[in-house]
Amino acid sequence: MFESIWVVLDMHFLGFLKATGMTLRLTAVSLALAVVIGLVFAFLKLSRNPIGNLLANAYIGVVRGTPLIVLLMFLYFGISEIVVLSSFWAGSLALAIHAGAYVAEIFRGTIQSIDHGQHEAARSLGMSRRLSMRLIILPQAFRRAIPPLGNQFIIGLKDSSLVAFLGVSELYSRAMTAAAANFRPFETYLVAGLYYLVLVLIFTWLVNQLELRLTPDRRAAA
């Protein structure tokens, strides 16, 4: 069996690597969009505007209440009736809309977790609500958001495999094709799994570095 893993690796190493590039592109585009979407809806949910609240709750409720694959198919087949959407963009958008709901909840939670005294101290120094949010609350909230965001990003990276069903040739789709052709599905999916595992490990390391970099106070105190 171990020889046959080497055979599969040898056969597909470069092809999988290329497909990994597509997986990374999907992940990067969708998560960048998800952060923007998440921030906007976190603010809507925190705002005192009832329409904004309603909008945010509806969005988060619907997305969390439906499977990603349904959203993917809906966007790809439903929306492309109206606008022409490449499978890459349909996939990226669906992943972004999906992850955005979770990211919104992460940002809302971390913004709310900042001690109200921080805001009061900022206001007492003459800062406006906006300035206090920008200079005092958000930088602290972002720091706190990194661990759960990293978690969400890892989920997003793995979720990108579902875009295979739209025909985007990313890692999982390449594995499906390869397994069908080489009659070694066990080894092929094992190798694909290893690719994902390595990606996630690298990503975890990057997130940890980012967290260290953004918390000079904790580094100094340690």
Binding site: A121, S124, I136, Q140
Partner: peptide, 15 residues
């Protein structure tokens, strides 16, 4: 508020 400085029981320094 610019004209009034305030100091709090729990400091509220920006960490």
């Amino acid at each position: 508020r610019e004209k009034m400085g305030m100091v709090f029981q729990h400091f509220h320094l920006f960490p």
